[in-house]
Write a protein that binds this DNA or RNA. Structure first.
Length: 340
DNA sequence: TTCCTGAAAA
DNA sequence: TTTTCAGGAA
């Protein structure tokens, strides 16, 4: 009974698999582990459409894990700009260096799990896709598919144990990598969050959620809490066509990224409003930006004074090449306002 | 609990 | 236009 779920899913995958830049066709030899790992890290909390151009650029710049390990940190962070969750980029570098050091990727789920930036999901995905291990790669797509398939009524996150057990029971010994990718494709294209296309689903005859009449309500999620609104200011300081940029602290919000100087706003408190240098300022507009756990209203202040000493650590960057600075989206928005 | 962003829905 | 939502690691 259970084994036919995998068989039906794989038969569907053989004709309906999405073609993605990092993926081997169904049944083909697995791609280079480096490519599998790079794509999976980029796909953490990120859609395939958004990640694809980043994947192509990274691969062109750094075709091997050794090349990435040898890359300057600042260059990697700048290439990551706009993808979000910048701890992933810091972990990417640390992981590349660890892997280069030990002479290649380990080929078991447990060893992969030890590397920086590889949690339960990514370790299982790389083990299955790159090394053919029968590991259960459970991302949000798989969670949704399995919760519906077995009509798991318990709300998330408590349901994770039951979902894991159910998933492990249907992972096939043959083609576990294709199985993992098929589950993700099914979740992304058929068993979608809002209006699942049950009529097109290769698993509809197995699906107990469908018998309840309304599979779309699964998985049940715990209610989310509302986001506070914070206020802050970013400072645009220009001199002879160049802008003053700083490097943010290595950890925390937008950690390690190039940025405009600001007044210290955070998730927990508004900024002080204090400018990094004294002199006249004029208003450059307001940027609204939403983070996971708070909304931010960032005022942009434009320097109108004429004393540029006492700026501290930072660098002058040509204002007309600000796109190339690798600013995270929040500051890219602020820069766009300032340049108008 | 702390980390971002862009697409989709309202 | 504004709001909601999708998507894992530490």
């Amino acid at each position: 009974m259970e084994h036919s779920i995998a068989a039906d899913l794989l038969a569907w995958y053989d004709r309906a698999a999405r073609t993605l830049p990092w993926r081997a066709p169904p049944g083909a030899a697995p791609p280079d582990p480096y490519r599998v790992w790079l794509s999976e890290v980029m796909l953490q909390q990120t859609t395939t459409v958004h990640a694809a151009p980043y994947y192509a650029r990274f691969l062109a710049l750094w075709p091997t894990v050794e090349a990435l390990a040898a890359a300057p940190e600042a260059a990697v962070m700048a290439e990551w700009a706009g993808l979000g969750y910048y701890a992933r980029a810091r972990n990417l570098i640390a992981c590349a260096r660890a892997v280069a050091e030990r002479g290649g990727f380990p080929d078991t789920e447990a060893e992969l799990r030890e590397l920086p930036g590889l949690g339960a999901y990514t370790a299982a995905a790389v083990a299955a896709i790159a090394f053919g291990r029968p590991a259960a790669a459970i991302d949000a797509n798989v969670e949704r598919v399995v919760a519906r398939l077995f009509a798991i009524e318990e709300p998330l996150p408590a349901a994770r144990k039951a979902i894991r057990a159910a998933t492990e029971a249907i992972v096939p010994p043959a083609r576990p990598g294709d199985f993992a990718q098929a589950m993700m494709d099914l979740g992304a294209t058929v068993c979608t969050p809002r209006s699942p296309k049950c009529l097109l689903c290769p698993l509809s005859t197995h699906c107990r959620g469908r018998l309840t009449g309304d599979p779309a309500r699964l998985p049940i999620k715990a209610p989310k809490k509302l986001r506070p609104l914070r206020a802050g200011t970013a400072f645009w300081i220009e001199k002879d066509g160049a802008v003053w940029l700083v490097r943010r602290a290595g950890k925390g919000m937008l950690g390690g990224m190039r940025a405009l100087p600001d007044d210290g706003w955070s998730a927990r408190a508004d900024g002080s409003g204090e400018a990094p240098i004294s002199g006249a300022w004029r208003a450059g507009g307001l940027v609204r930006h939403t983070f996971t756990h708070f909304d931010l209203e960032l005022g942009v202040a434009l320097y109108a004074g004429e004393r540029w000493d006492d700026l501290g650590e930072g660098e002058w960057w040509p204002a007309d090449e600000i796109e190339a600075a690798g600013l995270p989206t929040l500051f890219a928005k602020a820069a766009r306002l300032a340049i108008l």
